[in-house]
């Protein structure tokens, strides 16, 4: 299954997506090598979230192709059950973290983390428990294993959501504005967990509006607007010397507000 090391972990070729008459992705190309961390920034409505959701096939693209470690994600040729089986298999190799956490409120923290490995990988109860506790330890929430989501703070919820996504040992992690819904004082604890993942060389695609975090953590940064990639560069260059006027304008507004 795993390809040679120079196969890109995620690859997008000419990806287009329409909602009715509105074209939200106008032909996106992107190559993410293994262990790389890519940040995507841009104003709301720029298509950055749609792009990330397309990688997980939560949005089905109209044109182009998306590959995960050499496997094609979008498969317009497959229908019905065959398509279901294909996409479920693909998704088991990707971890997705949502803006609004989407923890399962009827399950305890530990159960949230262990549900997928137990039911989808057939892991036994004690093995899953061990794995779950290890992951909760990693996000600093081992003491909350028996708690239910309703009793957690936003930052804690998002850390559990990250642990839940990691439980399937994904090849790539997708973060969709993971800290946007959090109170400012809770952002840092989530950022720390994400930095921890970066140090372990997890491949990550991060949609964010946290410019400072994007600059610190990523290897490559992309600025999107109006469904196209306006500019992509190393974070140092993109944030300090942007080439395009739209990027400069956007950064002036947002870096100014953050300082």
């Amino acid at each position: 299954m795993t390809q040679t090391t120079d196969t890109p972990m995620v690859e997008l070729k000419g990806v287009k997506k329409r909602f009715g008459d509105l074209e939200v992705l106008k032909g996106i190309d992107l190559r993410v090598d293994r262990g790389r961390i890519i940040s995507i920034i841009g104003p709301s409505g720029s298509g950055k979230s749609t792009l990330l959701r397309s990688v997980n096939n939560l949005e089905v693209i109209d044109e182009g192709s998306i590959l995960l470690d050499g496997m094609q994600v979008n498969r317009p040729d497959l229908k019905g059950l065959a398509y279901e089986r294909h996409i479920n298999h693909i998704r088991q190799n990707m971890g997705m973290v949502f803006q609004h956490f989407n923890l399962f409120p009827h399950l305890s923290t530990l159960e949230n983390v262990t549900l997928a490995p137990r039911k989808l990988k057939g892991m036994n109860a004690s093995g899953a428990r061990e794995l779950g506790m290890e992951l909760l330890e990693r996000v600093g929430l081992a003491d909350k294993a028996q708690a239910y989501p309703s009793s957690l703070s936003g930052g804690q919820k998002q850390r559990v959501a990250i642990a839940r996504a990691l439980a399937m040992q994904p090849k790539v992690m997708l973060f969709d504005e993971a800290t946007s819904a959090l109170d400012p004082e809770l952002v840092e604890e989530v950022n720390l967990v994400m930095k921890g993942l970066a140090e372990e060389h997890m491949t990550m695609l991060i949609v964010t509006h946290e410019m400072t975090f994007a600059r610190d953590v990523s290897d490559w940064a992309m600025f999107m607007d109006g469904g196209v990639v306006v500019e992509a560069n190393t974070p140092e260059n993109l944030f300090s010397h942007p080439d395009q006027e739209r990027t400069q304008h956007f950064l002036r507004k947002h870096l100014g507000a953050q300082a």
Binding site: L58, H89, I90, M96, F98, N102, F104, R164, M168
Partner: peptide, 11 residues
Amino acid sequence: GQNEASRSLGF
């Protein structure tokens, strides 16, 4: 969001 979270895990 519950449906999306579950589907994104591969269920």
